[in-house]
């Protein structure tokens, strides 16, 4: 999301004429994004992570053109079952004779989709709960923070497994199960930040000028907690990708869609472990680890740009 900022980076040296408040606000935002990118660039691991992500995103987006959705078809499999790696099938074939390389590339679509959507859902719930709990004090905040604390002590994976079992097998179930169980950390962080923001004088000024609850929360508090929310989302995605793989591995995913966790489950069911077919297991697992690591590296770089005290290695 930050790649396109290089083109907009050089800020206008001197605005020739007074502009509308909106234009000024946009100019200010552009400048802070450019500043963010300049600092982000100095984190070598963050840049590596970002490059890896761009690569994965390209693979996932172009998969329908380069691979074609017939890759999942069991009846039109190109090879014999359980072939080892060869010139024709670099990663070998699965128990139906499908090409594992293409299946792994195709699986990136599910992992990235679920990872992104689940993390966005989780952070959106967390931000909403956090901001409202920090803005409205009194019984509402007490009740909602009790609920948050309660979710916080629940064993997350156990709860997600339970939810995925209760609902029908589909991608949206997985997204929901992950999103609904992982928001409390964000809610706590956002609430703390909201409390800090709301104690500043300009909030009092906005209130004195007649700003309502919705105005203050969306125009004054939200922009200030946005960096935190962004960092949380990036870090949350790698968590969500791992959870998706876990749920799919336990057989709770959509059985008709190829995902990395699902491939590992297939491998285990086909007896790839006891027969020592390591080449079946290695690519999906490495792919999960690589994407999760890339998002973690980006998240840490974002976090340390916004909070330099963390001392993340560059």
């Amino acid at each position: 999301m930050t790649t396109d900022t290089t083109t907009t980076a050089p800020p206008d040296p001197a605005p020739s004429a007074p502009r509308s408040p909106r234009a000024l606000a946009w100019q200010r935002r552009r400048r802070s994004v450019a500043r963010f990118w300049r600092q982000y660039r100095t984190h070598r691991t963050g840049v590596v992570g970002l490059a890896a992500l761009v690569l994965f995103a390209l693979v996932a987006l172009t998969a329908p053109l380069t691979i074609g959705s017939d890759v999942q078809s069991v009846t039109e499999a190109p090879g014999r079952p359980m072939e080892g790696p060869s010139g024709q099938f670099w990663f070998g074939t699965d128990q139906y004779g499908r090409d594992l390389l293409r299946l792994v590339l195709w699986g990136s679509r599910v992992s990235l989709t679920v990872g992104l959507l689940a993390a966005v859902l989780s952070v959106a719930i967390g931000a909403l709960v956090g901001i409202t709990a920090g803005h409205f004090r009194g019984w509402y905040a007490t009740v909602i923070m009790r609920v948050t604390d309660w979710f916080l002590v629940m064993p997350t994976l156990v709860l997600a497994i339970a939810l995925a079992t209760v609902m029908s097998r589909s991608l949206s179930t997985i997204i929901l199960a992950i999103g609904v169980t992982t928001w409390p950390t964000t809610a706590r962080l956002v609430r703390a930040q909201t409390l800090a923001v709301e104690s500043r004088p300009y909030i009092e000024r906005a209130r004195a000028l007649g700003g309502g609850h919705a105005h203050i929360m969306s125009r004054h508090v939200l922009p200030n907690v946005m960096p935190l929310v962004l960092a949380q989302t990036t870090l949350g995605i790698s968590n969500a990708i791992l959870s998706e793989a876990t749920l799919a591995f336990l057989g709770l995913g959509d059985p008709t869609i190829t995902s990395w966790g699902g491939l590992l489950q297939d491998a285990r069911e086909a007896g790839a472990v006891s027969s020592g077919h390591w080449w079946y297991l290695v690519p999906p697992g490495l792919a999960i680890a690589a994407v999760a690591l890339a998002f973690t590296l980006c998240g840490r770089a974002v976090e340390s740009v916004l909070n330099p005290k963390l001392g993340v290695a560059r």
Partner: peptide, 27 residues
Amino acid sequence: TGLALTLFSVPSFWLGLMLIIVFSVGM
């Protein structure tokens, strides 16, 4: 830090399966 971050990103079940293949089944 790099090693910890990498292992932290590895799914536990996959690592378990790989260890079984390498050290139990034998490779």
